[in-house]
Simulated assay, not measured.
Amino acid sequence: MKIEERAQVLEKARKLDMVDVAHALDMSLDPLGAHYTWHEHDSFVIDTRKNMFY
């Protein structure tokens, strides 16, 4: 993959909503304020303000 193609793929991935991706993967999420936790592993948290997970 060329550098330009890789940059385009990464930019497209950055624009995705993490909660939508989790739902597409059939992950069961529990809302917790501005965050979501994964029902199976509560240490997996999605921060909706930053659109990041940890």
Rank of each mutant, 00 (worst) to 15 (best):
M1D: 08
K2V: 02
I3D: 06
I3R: 01
I3P: 00
E4N: 09
E5Y: 00
E5H: 03
E5F: 00
Q8T: 08
V9D: 03
L10F: 08
E11Q: 14
E11P: 01
K12N: 11
K12W: 08
A13T: 08
K15M: 11
L16V: 07
L16Y: 02
D17S: 12
D17E: 08
D17C: 11
D17Y: 02
D17G: 02
D17A: 04
M18N: 13
M18D: 05
V19C: 03
D20I: 00
V21R: 10
V21K: 11
A22M: 05
H23W: 09
A24Y: 05
D26W: 09
M27T: 07
M27W: 14
S28V: 10
S28F: 06
S28P: 00
D30Q: 14
D30S: 09
D30E: 15
P31K: 07
P31S: 04
L32S: 14
L32W: 11
L32Q: 14
A34G: 07
A34K: 13
A34P: 06
A34R: 12
A34F: 07
A34H: 14
H35I: 01
H35Q: 14
Y36E: 01
T37M: 13
T37W: 06
H39T: 13
H39C: 06
H39K: 15
E40C: 05
H41G: 07
D42G: 12
D42C: 09
D42V: 10
S43Y: 11
F44C: 08
V45N: 07
V45T: 10
V45H: 06
I46G: 01
I46T: 02
D47P: 00
D47K: 02
T48E: 03
T48K: 09
T48I: 04
R49Y: 12
K50S: 14
K50G: 03
N51P: 03
N51V: 07
N51R: 05
N51F: 06
N51Y: 05
M52N: 10
M52R: 15
F53N: 09
F53M: 12
Y54T: 12
